[in-house]
Amino acid sequence: MKEIIQQYLEKYGFEALCPKAVLFDMDGVLYDSMPNHAVAWQRSMATFGIEMTASDAYATEGARGVDTIRMMVKKQQGRDIDEQEAQRMYDEKTRQFHLMPEAPIMPGVLELMKQIKDCGLQIGVVTGSGQRPLIQRLLNDFKNYLAEEHITTAYDVKRGKPNPDPYLAGLKKAGNLKSYEAIVVENAPLGVRAGVAAKIFTVAVNTGPLPDESLIKEGANLLFADMPSFNLQWNHLFHQIYDLR
């Protein structure tokens, strides 16, 4: 693990990795919600004549919903639609999603957050969603670890993942931190690409059906099979980081 951290530092010319915050993605990381999202995407887009598969939903996870819709419409119908039309379509996706059963908190997350807090680090969330009910649920479920001012949503940026903007906004909300002062936790290729583009040490947790390679090729610094595995390794990672300082 020390070698991986050292490679990260050398890549960007940083002297040390000095984490003050951990920035979590939401869907597929904090909640086991991606199966619900996949169904909601398929059902809602079908009403607009757009074929969207479960694989499409996982592959585009992390991007702003309106950006995904504009891309799919252009690809399948050859039309350029504005953000307002895309938002109306996304509203239907939101409606379908809220008809689904409530997604459970991802196993291992609460334990991991407790360890992070005990280490004196701040916790933030960087999500491509902007749905108020989901933000309120975050605040209810993680009230001991998360404050609203540390949540970055689709409405905080003009360019969503895979651009670095969401995680750069997350750094700003965490107290104008530098890239080497945070750790990103992601489960999706576009999210990993965004974290890496922001030059943040990025941990991928493969909680979905995509192959590990889809996360590794985007530049993930570390890869875990699930959140409990990352939870078990947190203290080791934290001490390895500080051994190199």
Score class of each variant (00 low, 15 high):
residue 192 V to S: 05
residue 72 M to Q: 15
residue 14 F to W: 12
residue 228 P to C: 05
residue 165 D to S: 13
residue 102 E to G: 00
residue 69 I to N: 01
residue 172 K to R: 14
residue 127 T to C: 06
residue 43 R to W: 01
residue 154 A to W: 07
residue 4 I to L: 13
residue 239 H to A: 02
residue 193 R to G: 12
residue 239 H to R: 14
residue 181 E to I: 06
residue 140 N to W: 06
residue 38 A to V: 02
residue 94 T to Y: 07
residue 91 D to H: 11
residue 59 A to M: 11
residue 82 D to Q: 07
residue 138 L to W: 11
residue 203 V to W: 08
residue 104 P to F: 12
residue 229 S to H: 12
residue 179 S to L: 02
residue 125 V to Y: 09
residue 74 K to E: 13
residue 218 E to C: 07
residue 181 E to T: 06
residue 34 M to C: 01
residue 111 E to V: 03
residue 104 P to H: 11
residue 37 H to T: 02
residue 170 G to Y: 12
residue 126 V to P: 01
residue 177 L to R: 10
residue 1 M to H: 10
residue 46 A to F: 01
residue 51 E to M: 05
residue 149 E to A: 03
residue 6 Q to M: 08
residue 66 V to P: 00
residue 158 K to N: 14
residue 227 M to Y: 11
residue 42 Q to T: 10
residue 220 A to V: 09
residue 194 A to G: 14
residue 64 R to Y: 05
residue 155 Y to T: 09
residue 189 P to N: 08
residue 5 I to L: 09
residue 61 E to S: 15
residue 219 G to M: 11
residue 139 L to S: 04
residue 42 Q to W: 00
residue 206 N to G: 06
residue 160 G to K: 13
residue 108 G to V: 09
residue 105 I to C: 05
residue 126 V to E: 02
residue 153 T to I: 08
residue 206 N to R: 15
residue 122 Q to H: 05
residue 15 E to R: 12
residue 136 Q to P: 00
residue 67 D to P: 06
residue 137 R to Q: 12
residue 193 R to Q: 15
residue 232 L to Y: 04
residue 116 I to T: 03
residue 60 T to R: 14
residue 189 P to C: 07
residue 245 R to V: 08
residue 199 K to Q: 15
residue 227 M to A: 06
residue 196 V to Y: 11
residue 30 L to S: 06
residue 209 P to M: 09
residue 14 F to I: 01
residue 16 A to M: 05
residue 105 I to Q: 08
residue 150 H to R: 15
residue 227 M to E: 06
residue 139 L to F: 11
residue 21 A to N: 05
residue 88 R to Y: 09
residue 63 A to S: 13
residue 37 H to N: 07
residue 135 I to N: 01
residue 101 P to Y: 11
